[in-house]
Design a protein around this nucleic acid. Structure first.
Lengths: 142, 142
DNA sequence: TTGATAAGCTACAGTGACTTTAGATAAAGG
DNA sequence: CCTTTATCTAAAGTCACTGTAGCTTATCAA
């Protein structure tokens, strides 16, 4: 039987985060000692590792819930898991695209700044006037 | 005098977001009509446009606060604004790096999936076992 | 057995940057 | 005057946690 701190150390997850996962139903309710402390089996550790690894790859908790459901029913088709992963890939690719446009714009901004007074600051000027931009970068947080 | 909806349309900002910016002190408190509705000047519109454009470039509201302060005091050196922009650029570059590592891993995952049953699903297998990964991708949300 | 220390517990508030909802009031046009 | 559209406040919800306060339990050496 493993204590919560052991799971924490083995997966690099904060203790509070593990309790949070239990609270939102991503982890099963753990058994308790007579004193009320949580105790885990190795299968719980595996499940937590799966969750954390998926998070590291950028999957949302909702996607992870789906993936765990699939993982728990080994007779189903793999197509669903595949499509979740592909969706995640598309999202990542879009974010990269957008960030690369931002990078370009920011680079231009700081390159044209010559350390003069704020009155002629290129950085502030660009921020004031979108029309000086090369790209549209219209959506925030996409 | 401009109504809040006009600012909303002209800057592509939701009405609630404008009120939120007022609430956290990023926008000045607007004047009111006798009936209690907010009315704005063109300078308020400009300020909002500055905020939104900065957000589109990924600056945090805290950074934007600093940039607005600088913009309001045109006699200062531009160095501060420059350093904020450079910091932002570094952040963007780091995020791109991390996302490119994720992209690589996700691509490999879906490429190796052949639509078999969940039991042999490569996607789930990789999620289960981090050691199958090429990269470390250790930090979440970096 | 005692006592110290580490680890764990609950419950709730805070983060960032908004978005959503509910229910009410104001303004504008015909 | 009436209807429609716009606006108002206040509070809760989002995502995925993190942090805090104030306790209680477990473990190990002396």
């Amino acid at each position: 039987m493993l204590a919560i701190g052991t799971l924490s150390r083995k997966t690099g997850t904060k203790v509070q985060t593990i309790r949070y996962y239990e609270q939102i139903g991503l982890m099963n309710e753990a058994g308790r000692t007579s004193g009320g402390q949580r105790r885990y089996y190795v299968k719980d550790l595996d499940r937590l590792a799966f969750i954390r690894h998926s998070r590291q790859l950028g999957f949302s908790l909702d996607s992870i819930r789906e993936l765990l459901d699939l993982s728990d029913n080994p007779s189903q088709s793999c197509a669903e898991a595949d499509s979740i992963a592909r969706r995640q890939l598309r999202q990542v690719e879009q974010r990269i695209k957008r960030l690369q446009a931002l990078k370009k714009e920011l680079k231009r901004m700081v390159a044209e700044c010559d350390g003069e007074s704020v009155a002629e600051c290129k950085v502030l000027e660009v921020l004031r006037d979108h029309s000086e931009c090369l790209t549209n970068h219209d959506e925030i947080g996409a």
